[in-house]
Design a protein around this nucleic acid. Structure first.
Length: 921
RNA sequence: GGGCGAAUAGCUCAGCUGGUUAGAGCGCCUGCCUUACACGCAGGAUGUCGGGGGUUCGAGUCCCUCUUCGCCCACCA
């Protein structure tokens, strides 16, 4: 066939079509009825995608994340599981709202100009028109998602789940409204959870400010602060109760400069005597610690800053903010206040100071602690089962070290602020009745009037944190809160969750909590945390830094398979993937080369086998298999074993992970390398090459070679398919016995299995092929040593260890072909100069090189080898002579060492004899 | 400040409960257009396994210590 196949593979020519045929054939669709949880015959295997933001476009991080999931899902699908990969997107509250607000800003407007309803409508239509682009892009890299189940966190179905979750938690007493200091983003004008306010070390200034005693202005207490503007909200100065420096002033009043209010000096153990001056200004409304302290001491909590970060007199702050400071941004006000303090001599000193500052994870603005009313989820009760689940092996986290991080975090978990002062998101299902009072009415359905008094009600203005919908993702996408939903029963709990460690707390741990709380079980048994895509300087790839690589560019230039191969082959467990944005060829060339290699193996096979059907391996007369056949079938079995060991087990056999299972599997890099190594280094380099003379000779043996060739190549394509699905599918469909249109797909073909054990005779014959390989390598090396072109034929003589001729015809033919040599028997050993190589079994390969032999060189080579062997042998024998070793080492180790010693001894004698004969002495 | 981890070939990493002569990919050097493939083939070089100590018959592997990196969390103003 196919001379019509070009020597290089053109991915662009086939990818789109192959993908379309997969979808058309329903390859990616999972049937709930097939799940054995619903009486079907297949084990379900489910992955839910970490939903990308609905406005996202594909970047390398998605490429990595999605490829990992696809490899796993395709592996399980081929292994016979009812494999489901649920795709979808996240409405991404703050992120999406920010996109629209930027649009409005470009138009010279803001969200207030539009009003809430119009803003939400605009966002919704923007999402409808442009959202979900990334889902299209996932198809371009071959993701085998079940598109019939595409979900969206803000869809009516999932929104129902969100509301149900809120109500149930509220009924359980786990949701409450709290008046406390939270993180406030001045730019997004919303509160943030602790996780959304990211720490960063910064150098600021620590100001030491003198607060005079109210009744004794020549005495004062000096406080230290990094945020002097907050002093307007001070209500006390706190010192440690045992701090003798201040014991005299505790209970006295100070006169707060600028604001000119009297504030007391109080004692509290919270204060660290060592830090600063040992006296802390207390601003309950603008600092979380001060807030706690304010509660303990029943202090007032004046708010001196507006939501946008300008100075203003809020609750309880009347008269505190001087008119000339009102309306100023806090940082400008800070400078003014410092200036004024300095003028009055109230600034004792200022010094540079390293401290942690929190930033909004969405816009990087420095967040302000701010006193406000928010909704919170009580996390301790939710965290307990989530903690137990990981501790008892119901859930494992890979790589293992993240488990300690997870546990550490959950043990110290704090309540979750879930209300956001945004417009884009799930509105909090709480209403207030103006007539009955403040009691919130929590409802599953929208209400128009008060159920008590029939009066008008007003819905809470806030929306829920985006993660309040994401944490339901594994259950909501499968139909929850309808607990009888078919998908939920068929596919929950899911299996593996694949994501980056950055969202372990945001998302993963909360999903585990939600799974236990709402469904009574963990949402998955394995969390696979992969690394980050970085450039060659180890800087995280990002669009804004300009060091990104567009996966679609890579697909266009190198093909989707090359992209997938590159990220998987470069991905150690938990390690980062380094790619070079400045040199795509270096990064993706190897992947493309591998695809080309496969392509050419396919070309060879197809042109030598043709379209004619070949017998199945099992139908062959096993006695007709050659040593090469046995060898490659053996190597295939070994490769399958290794691939399976790298990938599995797919789930814990007993429901929870046993110690033996806990840390194994999902070694995608090792799996890929093993499949590649087998295909390239064994199948292509040795077996395929060895079949050439047999195929051209024709006859029965050519038929055997064809059958084995097809069998092994088929198996290799199966193993490689999860990583490089497009090219393997294309080649597989062209193999003999797969008529076009028969609806056969590699994507649904069975995962290869090793032959039944017991082929012991085959094993012996296979190991004889290893000697062929050694002989070939020996001849090639001699040729390279003497500068003889590989293509130039030489004579070669094989001599067994006992001096007898090795006369096996198959062996001689193979070596002759693979090493380009005329292989002769020992009786024909020429008397002239020759190059020698001693093989591991003590047998020899001799290449007569009359006239060109360099005896010096040859002797040097042999002597070096001999010396090396003797050193090693001596060390080995010393170990064996050692008492402790023989008595304490495990028997099999001792046995192996003894066998080795015998083998090396024989080889040493062989070599030594060679040296004597050739070099004298 | 609390918790966790890493240091093995030029680069990225394997090396499981201590036991063959420490491996792979990429890169590098030499030679080859050998009728599937130069996106290829053949051959080759490269590591006192971060330093020091200890346990052991035996340590890259276990323990201690030092050095250097990294990650997560955190309310010393």
């Amino acid at each position: 066939m196919p001379s019509e196949l070009s020597p290089t593979f053109d991915p662009a020519a086939i990818e789109r079509d192959v993908y379309a045929r997969w979808v058309e054939a329903g390859i990616f669709h999972a049937e709930a009825d097939s799940s054995n949880r619903l009486g079907g015959s297949r084990t379900p295997f489910t992955i839910v995608i970490p939903p990308p933001n609905v406005t996202a476009v594909l970047h390398m991080g998605h490429g990595l994340n999605s490829t990992v999931q696809d490899v796993i899902v395709r592996w399980r699908r081929m292994s016979g599981d009812e494999a489901l990969w649920v795709p979808g997107t996240d409405h991404a509250g703050i992120a999406t709202q920010n996109v629209i607000e930027r649009q409005l800003a470009d138009e010279g407007r803001n969200r207030a100009d539009l009003g809430r309803a119009a803003f939400v409508e605009r966002t919704r239509s923007f999402v409808n028109e442009t959202g979900g682009v990334i889902l299209e892009q996932l198809r371009a890299i071959g993701c085998s998602c079940d598109w019939t189940r595409t979900a969206y966190t803000f869809s009516p179905e999932l929104s129902r789940g969100v509301r149900e979750a809120f109500v149930r938690l509220h009924e359980a007493g786990l949701i409450y409204r709290g008046h406390r200091v939270i993180h406030w983003c001045l730019r997004c004008l919303t509160s943030l959870s602790d996780e959304e306010a990211e720490h960063a070390e910064e150098t600021g200034t620590l100001y030491h400010i003198r607060y005079p005693l109210a009744d004794q202005s020549d005495r004062s207490v000096v406080v230290a602060t990094t945020r002097p503007e907050t002093m307007l909200g001070d209500v006390a100065v706190a010192v440690h109760p045992d701090d003798e420096r201040y014991s005299a002033v505790v209970g006295h009043d100070l006169l707060l400069p600028i604001a000119n209010v009297r504030i007391p000096v109080i004692a509290d153990e919270y204060v660290d005597r060592e830090f600063g001056t040992g006296a802390v200004k207390i601003t309950p409304a603008h600092d979380p610690n001060d807030f706690e302290l304010g509660l303990r001491h029943a202090l007032p909590m004046p708010v001196i800053m507006a939501p946008d970060g300008t100075m203003s007199e809020g609750d309880d702050a009347s008269g505190r903010v001087p008119p000339e400071l009102r309306g100023l941004d806090r940082l400008i006000a800070r400078q003014r206040i410092v200036d004024r303090l300095r003028e009055r001599g109230a600034l004792a000193r200022s010094e540079s100071h390293q401290h942690g500052v929190r930033h909004c994870y969405r816009c990087d603005t420095v967040v302000e602690p701010r006193l406000s009313d928010q909704w919170f989820v009580r996390m301790k009760p939710l965290a307990e089962p989530a903690l137990a689940g990981v501790r008892n092996g119901r859930v494992r986290i890979l790589p293992e070290r993240w488990e300690a991080v997870y546990i550490n975090w959950l043990e110290g978990i704090r309540d979750w602020n879930i209300s956001r002062q945004l417009w884009w998101g799930h509105r909090i299902p709480v209403w207030y009745c103006g007539a009955c009072g403040d009691a919130p009415i929590v409802s599953r359905t929208d209400i128009a009037e008060c159920p008590e008094c029939g009066g008008p009600v007003r819905q809470d203005d806030d929306v829920l944190d985006t993660w309040f919908s994401s944490w339901l993702w594994p259950i909501s996408t499968l139909g929850w809160p309808d607990e009888a939903a078919t998908d939920l029963r068929a596919f929950y709990p899911t299996d593996v969750l694949v994501t980056a460690p950055e969202i372990l707390f945001f998302w993963v741990s909360r999903m585990i909590m939600a799974g236990y709380f709402f469904m009574g079980d963990a949402p998955f048994h394995t969390v696979y945390l992969h690394g980050t895509v970085r450039d060659m300087e180890h800087v995280k790839m990002s669009k804004s830094l300009g060091n990104g690589i567009d996966p679609l560019d890579v697909v266009a230039l190198y093909g989707a398979d090359a992209l997938r191969y590159t990220v998987i082959a470069g991905l150690g467990m938990g390690t980062d993937v380094m790619l070079d944005p400045g040199n795509l060829e270096q990064s993706f060339g190897p992947g493309r080369n591998f695809a080309t290699k496969l392509w050419n193996m396919g070309r060879f096979l197809l042109s030598n086998v043709g379209d004619a059907e070949v017998p199945l391996l099992a139908d062959l007369d096993q006695a007709k298999l050659t040593r090469a056949d046995e060898w490659i079938l053996n190597r295939l079995d070994s490769a399958i074993h290794r691939c399976d060991a790298a990938l599995g087990p797919s789930h814990p056999a007993a429901g929870t992970w046993s110690d033996a299972e806990l840390r194994v599997g999902l070694r995608l890099m090792e799996f890929t390398e093993e499949a590649r190594r087998f295909t390239w280094d064994e199948l292509a380099a040795w077996y395929l090459e060895s079949t050439k003379p047999r195929l051209s000779a024709g006859g029965d043996d050519a038929g055997v070679a064809r059958a084995v060739l097809v069998h092994v190549f088929d198996a290799a394509l199966r193993m490689l398919h999860p990583v490089v699905p497009f090219i393997t599918e294309t080649l597989w469909q062209r193999l003999p016995g797969r008529p076009p249109g028969a609806g056969m797909f590699l994507a649904r073909a069975a995962w290869p299995r090793p032959r039944a054990t017991g082929a012991a005779s085959g094993h012996a014959r296979a190991s004889e092929f290893e000697l062929v390989r050694e002989s070939v390598s020996a001849v090639r090396q001699i040729k390279a040593d003497y500068g003889i072109p590989l293509g130039k034929s030489v004579d070669a003589v094989l001599v067994a260890r006992d001096g007898a001729a090795r006369t096996l015809e198959e062996e001689r033919a193979l070596i002759g072909h693979l090493a380009r040599a005329q292989v002769r028997t020992a009786t024909e050993v020429p008397s002239g100069a020759a190059a020698h190589a001693v093989l591991t079994d003590g047998s020899e390969v001799i290449v007569p090189l009359a006239g060109t032999i360099d005896v010096e060189k040859e002797c040097h080579k042999l002597r070096t080898e001999l010396a090396q062997l003797e050193t090693q042998l001596a060390a080995l024998r010393q170990r064996l002579d050692n008492h402790g070793f023989v008595s304490r080492a495990p028997a099999h180790v001792v046995e192996a060492e003894r066998a080795k010693s015998t083998e090396w001894g024989a080889r040493r004698d062989q070599l030594a004899g060679k040296v004597r004969a050739l070099c004298g002495s």
